[in-house]
């Protein structure tokens, strides 16, 4: 991934910055210029709480270029408490113990190092919420 492209997404990757429609309240991640629900173009910045429920997941055994040193790794879709879905890796856990319906929280983690540009990319990952 190119440096400007990563830099541009930092508010999303680092702070879970989302959009909230001023008209109908729909939350989108990333934010959009047009609300997919009501078509309104007025929206405000909000930050996701980072908590949600695991809807589905998989374990990537054959990774794409750039993730070879990490496989196997878990990746899943979490329905955030704000209602919007977010996809990310699931880490710091026994992947064989994961179940649909588990409560997840986001943590700030290293996603990958880019070989060509040398940038180290950080973003949210999910970990099971074990209540500590």
């Amino acid at each position: 991934m190119q440096v400007p492209k990563f830099w541009r997404e930092i508010p999303r990757y680092y702070r879970l910055e989302a959009g909230k429609c001023d008209q109908c309240g729909k939350i989108t991640f990333p934010s959009r210029l047009v609300c997919p629900e009501c078509g309104s173009r007025e929206h405000s910045k909000v930050h996701l709480s980072g908590r949600g429920t695991l809807k589905t997941f998989t374990i990537i055994r054959i990774p794409p270029d750039g993730f070879g040193d990490q496989a196997p790794y878990a990746i899943g879709i979490v329905q955030m408490d704000e209602g919007v879905g977010v996809m990310a890796q699931i880490t710091d856990c026994d992947v064989d113990a994961l179940s649909i319906g588990d409560t997840m929280i986001t943590k700030f983690r290293r996603v990958r190092e880019e070989g060509k540009t040398g940038i180290i990319m950080y973003a949210y990952k999910f970990v099971p919420d074990v209540g500590v």
Binding site: M1, R12, F29, P30, T56, F57, T58, I60, I62, P63, P64, G66, F67, Q70, Y73, I75, G76, I77, V86, M87, A88, Q89, V111, R112, M121, A123, K125
Partner: peptide, 15 residues
């Protein structure tokens, strides 16, 4: 917001 996290096409359909 998908491929960035290391998901593959088999991974999407696996989910």
């Amino acid at each position: 917001f998908e491929a960035f996290h290391g998901v593959t096409f088999p991974g999407l359909y696996a989910m």
